[in-house]
């Protein structure tokens, strides 16, 4: 069993499992953000509850490890695949209309997602969880998640950056979700097209959900009640 991760399918399995965990995290993150859309104080209560207790820190560490593995293996696979393609490239390459653009550009999309993540961590994680751990103090409190949302999404360039990030994430998950299921073998002739549609829906819901939150705060519509 140990040699499983030294095989091409095993390496893809790592991408698949870590990718699925990240999608689950995104759904969890989005559901938390929706609390902010309705009630600022309720969202701050969630931020305060998660705060810096051990399970939030352990969750963050596991998540970071998953991200790291996903990124490292993405580069390992890309290098190996470029080598497998050979040194001489085709002079003419006509893209088949049945081949999704996103499936051919997962690394580029992943790099944009990673850049967006860096921005997001600098904006929120650094000023919230890290501030609490390091004892840093800012005008907006470490558990005032709603305050930080209002502060950052009142800036148009930040809103544009986040929307670009979400589009990249959307395209990445559109292919990544069903591809992960295919890699673990959860696919067959009947489910192949259904899984692609489910994948498009999952990616679409994640994209639309986050975009609504950002736009809602940019237009000062959110929080709806307090």
């Amino acid at each position: 069993m140990s040699s499983i991760f030294q095989s091409s399918i095993g390496r893809k399995l790592i991408m698949s499992i870590t990718g699925m965990c990240l999608v689950l995290f995104l759904i969890f993150h989005l559901s938390m953000n929706f609390v902010a859309a309705f009630s600022g104080s309720a969202y701050n209560a969630v931020c305060g509850f998660l705060g810096t207790n051990w399970y939030a820190l352990a969750g963050t560490a596991v998540l970071a490890l998953g991200f790291l593995l996903h990124i490292i293996y993405a580069f390992i696979l890309t290098v190996r695949n470029r080598k497998a393609r050979g040194s001489v490239r085709y002079a003419v390459e006509a893209r088949n209309s049945k081949v999704e653009w996103s499936s051919q550009n997962m690394l580029v999309l992943g790099i944009i997602v990673l850049a967006g993540l860096g921005l997001h961590l600098a904006h929120f994680w650094y000023h919230m969880m890290w501030a609490e751990l390091a004892g840093n103090e800012y005008e907006i409190g470490a558990t005032d998640g709603t305050g930080w949302l209002q502060y950052y999404f009142s800036q148009i360039p930040v809103v544009i950056c986040y929307l670009v990030w979400f589009v990249a994430l959307w395209l990445h998950i559109t292919h990544g979700f069903w591809s992960a299921l295919q890699t673990i073998g959860a696919n067959n002739l009947v489910w192949i097209d259904r899984l692609q549609k489910i994948s498009a829906w999952v990616a679409g819901i994640i994209f639309a959900g986050f975009a609504v939150i950002v736009i809602g705060f940019a237009l000062k519509v959110f929080p709806l009640f307090d």
């Binding site: 091409s8 390496r11 497998a84 088949n96 049945k98 499936s103 051919q104 997962m106 591809s179």
Partner: peptide, 11 residues
């Protein structure tokens, strides 16, 4: 034999 990893592009 040096073949690459499948990324399910369906090409």
């Amino acid at each position: 034999l040096g073949f690459g990893n499948c990324t399910n592009t369906r090409a």
